[in-house]
Design a protein around this nucleic acid. Structure first.
Length: 868
RNA sequence: GCGAGAGUGGCGGAAUUGGCAUACGCGCCAGACUUAGGAUCUGGUCCCGAAAGGGUUGAGGGUUCGAGUCCCUCCUCUCGCACCA
C-alpha cells in the first residue's frame, strides 16, 4: 500500500508538517551531554540542543562562518552522507559512488549538475540509550521489548589503542621490531601516560572495541574490516596485490553473500604488525570480512583462545593461540565450542568463550574475569591507553529513497559558479512549506540510480536565492516511515493548518493508551516513531516522552487451512501411487523446509479434498494409502498461493458486522489464526438469531417481536443478564473478545427461546453487543423504540448482589477422582459440606468400609476425601 | 546456532490462574417443518465399553490430596536475529 502516494494526492498538509518535523531534526545538535528540562519541570541529562545554541569551539569560530556552518552540519541529527557505495534497488546492484556520478549524464536536455547520489541519514544512534532505557516505562509485551533491546544491542566494554607507529614508513613490519620501533613505542607510551586517552584515534594507533578487555593478554593478532581507512597504509609491498584482490572481492559481495558464506572464514595478512599495549608483543594485522566496518571501530583485537570466530580464523590461517582464561573446574564445552575442537599433539583443544579465572596475564593472574575487566579498564584509562566504552548495534537510519512518491526534503544544495555543489545546504523557510511534488510525465523508477526527481522541471529543481547563490533542490524523497512516524499525533488534530497538532489537544490525548499493531513493526516503525517522538519532546512540541503507553500485537490471519499431498513432477521415483487418484504421491515427511526439489526433480503440491484424507495417529494420510503422509496447515495469505481473502467480498456477502465479529471471535487477539469461511457463516448465523430474537420475522414489515414485553424479568433471566454483563465487561477489559462473544451467544441461546422476553433484559444486551456489531445493534436499538442513537448510552452495569446464588454444585473427589456432585448452600462450611456429601447415596457407598485420612474443602469449589 | 512463543476433539478455540478438561463456534450424524433446502428449529457428537466403569491436554519423569496449568528431560511447530568483537 503506497501510503506516501495517498498522502501526496489527498493531504498536502501532511507533507507540510512532516517536512516541518524534519526541519526540527535538521536543526538539532546531538553530540553532547547537557542538562535539559522536561515540560513537567524535571531535569534530565540528555541530548538534542538546538543548532543555534551549539557551542562552537574557538578554532572553528576563528576559521570563519563557513567553517561554523560545516561544524554545525556535522552535528545535526539529520545529515547527508556520501556513502562509499550505494545500493540501487532498481538495478539490484552495488554501484561505487563515482559510477553514480558518471551515470548522471546529460539526459533530457536538463543542465548537468554533478551532485553525487548522497543519502540522508537520521542519527537515531544519538538516542540509542534513551530508546533502550525508556522501554522500562511502557506497558508492552516483553517479547517486543526484547526485540528492541536486541536491535539496539547495547554492550559494555572498552576501547583500546594498539600502537602501529607514527607514519607509514615507521610502521612496525616484522615479528622482531627494530630498536627504532621499540623506541617509538616507549616514547608513545610515555606521552600517552601524560596526555591521556585522546577523543579521536590518531594515525599512529589502531583503535579497537572489545567487551572482553580481560583477554587482552591473549590477543595474538588484529583484524581490520576490508573498508578500514588504514588498510592501504598498513599493506606491505609484498602483500599489496593480495590485499587489493581481497578487498575488491569483499566490496562486490553483497551483505547477503557475506553472511551466507558465514561458515568459512576468509582473510589476508597486511604484512604489518601492531604492539599489544599490555605486554609489548608485536602481533600481525590481518584483513577479514568477518569484521564489520559498521560496528565498533571496524577493527578488533583477536583472541583466538576465547572467541569462537577468532578461533576459527586462527585455526584456518595457523595463527598463535594463547589461553588466558581458565574455565571453572566443572566446565563442559558447549555444542559450538566442541564443534570447533581440534587435536594438538594428541590433546583436544577447544575455544572457551565464557568467564573464569585469569592466567598468563602478568600481575592480573588469579583474578576472576569480572574483577579483571574492571581493574584493567581503570588501569588502561590511567595510562591513557584505553577507556570504558559503550557500543550499540543500532545504526543510523538511512532516511532517503529514490522514489517519486514521498515527501521531498525541504533542502537546497548551494552551487558554485560552475554549477557544482559546494556541500553546503540551505533549508526552506517554514512559511514556504510544503515542498510539493512537481508535475512529471515520467515519475516511475527508471532503473538508473538517481532519483526520478533529478529530472523534474528546471523551475522546481533550481532557484537563485536573494543573495545571488544558485541552489539545486534535493532530489531524494523521504521513505514511507516519515508519515507513519507521527500520524498518531495528526489523528488528534487532522485539520489544523497552523500547527502539526494543537498543544492543548496533544496534552489532552497523548500518550496513545492502546496501540494494536502487527509484530512485524516491532523494531522498525515502533523504534522510528519513538525516536521522532523523543526529538519532538526534547524540543517541547509534545508533552510525553513515549508515544505508546500500551502495545498489543494482533496475530496474523492466515489463509484457509489446506490439505496438500506432494508428488515429484516428472516420473514416480520412490513414489507410491494413490489408488484413488492414480497420482504418484510422496510422503510429506520428505518435503520439509520449503524444499522444492528431491534428487534434482521439482516437487509439486497437490490440493486434496477432505474425503481423500484420513487421520492416522498424529498425522494426516491419504485415505487410499495410509503410508503417504499429507500436510494439513494454513499458510500466509499470498497472491502466489491464491489463498487471499478479500475483506470487501466478505463485507458484500455477510456484512461488515459479521466480518468484524468473526475476526474477534476466531481466537485470542495475539495468536496467528487461520481464516475459515464457515466460521464467518457461524457468526453470521448468530447475528441472524439476535435479529430474530428482537424483530418479528413473521411480519411483512420490520417490526418488534411480540415476545418483547415490558414484563418483569424472572430471577434466572436477571442473573443470566448480569452474569453476561460481568463476563463481557471483563473480557473487553482483557481484550479477550472471543470469549466475550461466546458469552453473548450463550445468552442468546437461552433467551431467544423464551416468551416473554422482558425489555429490561433485552435492552442492556443490545448495548453489550454494540461494540462488536455496531450496525446491527443500532438497528435493534431503534427497533426497540429508542429515538436516540445508543452511542450515548452508558455501558450496562452489573449488580454483584444479583449474581449471588443460594446453592452451588460442587464436585466431590475421592482419592483425587471425581465420584459425584452435591448441591450445597453457598458459603457452607466444611462440616456441612461433608454432611451433604455423605448423604449422597453414591458417595456414601464409595466411602463405606474406608477410613477417611484427610478432607480437603475449598469453599464453593470442591470437596475431596483421601481414604484408605 | 542464538532468542522468544506455542503444542488441548475432525477444525478454530474455552478452562475464574493448582480445583468438574473440551465452554462457544465450525464440521459431522439423526430428527422436525418442507415440493425442495446450502433456510430454520430440536437432539446427539473426545476415546474404549452393551453397561457398570475406565482412559484422555505432544512424549517421558517429578512435586501435590489434586496438574492442561508448577518443576526437570526430550520431541515438534511458528516467529525474530544471525560473524555485533
Amino acid at each position: 500500500y503506497d501510503w506516501s502516494r495517498e498522502l501526496a494526492t489527498t493531504d498536502p498538509e501532511y507533507f507540510r508538517w512532516t517536512q516541518w518535523i524534519f526541519l526540527r531534526l535538521f536543526d538539532t545538535w546531538y553530540d553532547a551531554d547537557f542538562q535539559w528540562t522536561d515540560p513537567a519541570g524535571k531535569s534530565h541529562m540528555g541530548k538534542g540542543l538546538p543548532i543555534a545554541e551549539l557551542p562552537i569551539p574557538d578554532p572553528v569560530r576563528a576559521a570563519g562562518s563557513e567553517a561554523v556552518r560545516r561544524y554545525q552540519d556535522k552535528h545535526r541529527l539529520a545529515y547527508q552522507t556520501e556513502a562509499p557505495v550505494n545500493w540501487c534497488p532498481a538495478l539490484g546492484t552495488v554501484l561505487a559512488n563515482e559510477e553514480i556520478i558518471d551515470g548522471k549524464s546529460e539526459r533530457g536536455g536538463h543542465p548537468v549538475v554533478r551532485i553525487p547520489l548522497r543519502q540522508w541519514m537520521l542519527r537515531i544512534t544519538a538516542y540509542a540509550e534513551r530508546l533502550l532505557d525508556d522501554l522500562d516505562t511502557v506497558d508492552w509485551p516483553e517479547s517486543i521489548k526484547l526485540l528492541q533491546r536486541n536491535w539496539i544491542g547495547r554492550s559494555e566494554g572498552a576501547e583500546v589503542d594498539f600502537f602501529i607507529g607514527g607514519s607509514a614508513s615507521s610502521a612496525i613490519s616484522s615479528t622482531s621490531p627494530t630498536p627504532a620501533a621499540i623506541n617509538d613505542f616507549q616514547n608513545w607510551n610515555q606521552t600517552r601516560a601524560k596526555s591521556g586517552f585522546p577523543r579521536e584515534a590518531g594515525s599512529d594507533v589502531i583503535r579497537i572495541y572489545t567487551t572482553r578487555p580481560d583477554t587482552l593478554f591473549g590477543a595474538t593478532y588484529m583484524v581490520l574490516a576490508p573498508e578500514h581507512s588504514f588498510v592501504e597504509r598498513l599493506t606491505s609491498p609484498s602483500q599489496k596485490s593480495a590485499v587489493e584482490t581481497y578487498c575488491r572481492q569483499a566490496a562486490t559481495k553483497s551483505d547477503l553473500d557475506r553472511t551466507d558464506l558465514a561458515k568459512e572464514k576468509t582473510g589476508v595478512f597486511t604484512g604489518s604488525f601492531a604492539i599489544n599495549p599490555v605486554n609489548g608483543e608485536p602481533i600481525p594485522i590481518w584483513i577479514a570480512d568477518y569484521v564489520l566496518i559498521s560496528y565498533g571501530t571496524g577493527a578488533i583485537m583477536a583472541v583466538p583462545a576465547h572467541d569462537l570466530r577468532d578461533w576459527a580464523f586462527a585455526v584456518k590461517f595457523g595463527l598463535r593461540v594463547v589461553g588466558v582464561v581458565q574455565p571453572p573446574a566443572d566446565y563442559e564445552p558447549n555444542q559450538e565450542e566442541k564443534h570447533l575442537a581440534r587435536e594438538v599433539k594428541g590433546r583436544t583443544e577447544w575455544p572457551f568463550a565464557g568467564v573464569g579465572t585469569s592466567i598468563a596475564s602478568g600481575s592480573y593472574n588469579g583474578l576472576s574475569s569480572t574483577e579483571f575487566k574492571e581493574k584493567i579498564t581503570n588501569d588502561l584509562a590511567s595510562q591513557g591507553l584505553g577507556r570504558r566504552a559503550v557500543n550499540y548495534r543500532l545504526r543510523d537510519w538511512l532516511f532517503s529513497r529514490q522514489h517519486f512518491w514521498g515527501e521531498p526534503f525541504p533542502i537546497w544544495h548551494e552551487l558554485d559558479a560552475s554549477g557544482n555543489p559546494t556541500g553546503l545546504l540551505r533549508t526552506d523557510p517554514e512559511s514556504e512549506l510544503p515542498v510539493t511534488l512537481p508535475e512529471m510525465r515520467h515519475y516511475k523508477p527508471h532503473g538508473r540510480p538517481e532519483p526520478p526527481l533529478a529530472e523534474a522541471p528546471p523551475d522546481w529543481r533550481f532557484r537563485t536565492d536573494k543573495d545571488g547563490t544558485r541552489l539545486a533542490r534535493e532530489t531524494n524523497t523521504m521513505p514511507q516511515w516519515a508519515g507513519s512516524c507521527w500520524y498518531y499525533l495528526r489523528f488528534i488534530d487532522p485539520k489544523n493548518h497552523t500547527a502539526f497538532v494543537d498543544p492543548a489537544k496533544e496534552k489532552a490525548w497523548m500518550p496513545v493508551d492502546l496501540y494494536i499493531g502487527g509484530a512485524e513493526h516491532a523494531v522498525l516503525h515502533l523504534l522510528y516513531s519513538r525516536f521522532w517522538h523523543k526529538v519532538l519532546f526534547d524540543r517541547g512540541h509534545v508533552s510525553t516522552c513515549e508515544p505508546f503507553r500500551r502495545l498489543v500485537n494482533q496475530g496474523m490471519i492466515l489463509g484457509e487451512a489446506e490439505l496438500a499431498g506432494y508428488r515429484i513432477a516428472d516420473g514416480n521415483e520412490a513414489a507410491v501411487s494413490d489408488p484413488q487418484s492414480g497420482i504418484p504421491f510422496i510422503s510429506a515427511r520428505r518435503v520439509r523446509d520449503d524444499m522444492d526439489e528431491i534428487s534434482g526433480k521439482p516437487v509439486v503440491a497437490v490440493k486434496l479434498a477432505p474425503e481423500q484424507v484420513a487421520k492416522k495417529g498424529n498425522e494426516f494420510v491419504l485415505a487410499g494409502n495410509p503410508d503417504i503422509i499429507v500436510e494439513s496447515r494454513a499458510f500466509k495469505m499470498s497472491k502466489s498461493r491464491g489463498n487471499v481473502v478479500n475483506p470487501d467480498q466478505v463485507v458484500a456477502d455477510y456484512g461488515a458486522d459479521a466480518l468484524r465479529l468473526y475476526e474477534m471471535f476466531m481466537g485470542p487477539l495475539e495468536a496467528t489464526k487461520p481464516w475459515s469461511m464457515s466460521g464467518v457463516e457461524g457468526v453470521s448465523r448468530f447475528l441472524a438469531r439476535v435479529w430474530r430474537m428482537i424483530s418479528d420475522e413473521g411480519a411483512d414489515e420490520i417490526r418488534i417481536n411480540p415476545a418483547i414485553q415490558d414484563a418483569a424479568a424472572t430471577p434466572e433471566q436477571t442473573r443470566l443478564l448480569h452474569k453476561t454483563i460481568q463476563a463481557v465487561t471483563n473480557d473487553i477489559e482483557s481484550l479477550s473478545f472471543n470469549t466475550a462473544i461466546s458469552r453473548m451467544m450463550e445468552f442468546v441461546n437461552a433467551i431467544s427461546v423464551q416468551d416473554p422476553r422482558p425489555r429490561t433484559v433485552i435492552d442492556p444486551f443490545v448495548l453489550l453487543l454494540a461494540p462488536f456489531a455496531p450496525h446491527l445493534a443500532e438497528e435493534l436499538w431503534q427497533l426497540l423504540g429508542h429515538a436516540q442513537t445508543l452511542a450515548y448510552e452508558p455501558w450496562p452495569a452489573f449488580d454483584a448482589a444479583l449474581l449471588v446464588e443460594t446453592e452451588v454444585e460442587i464436585p466431590v473427589q475421592i482419592n483425587g477422582k471425581v465420584r459425584g456432585k452435591v448441591r450445597i448452600p453457598v458459603g457452607a462450611d466444611q462440616e456441612a459440606a461433608v454432611l451433604h456429601a455423605k448423604s449422597d447415596a453414591r458417595i456414601a457407598e464409595q466411602l463405606t468400609g474406608k477410613q477417611i485420612i484427610k478432607v480437603i474443602y475449598v469453599q464453593n469449589r470442591l470437596l475431596s476425601f483421601v481414604v484408605k
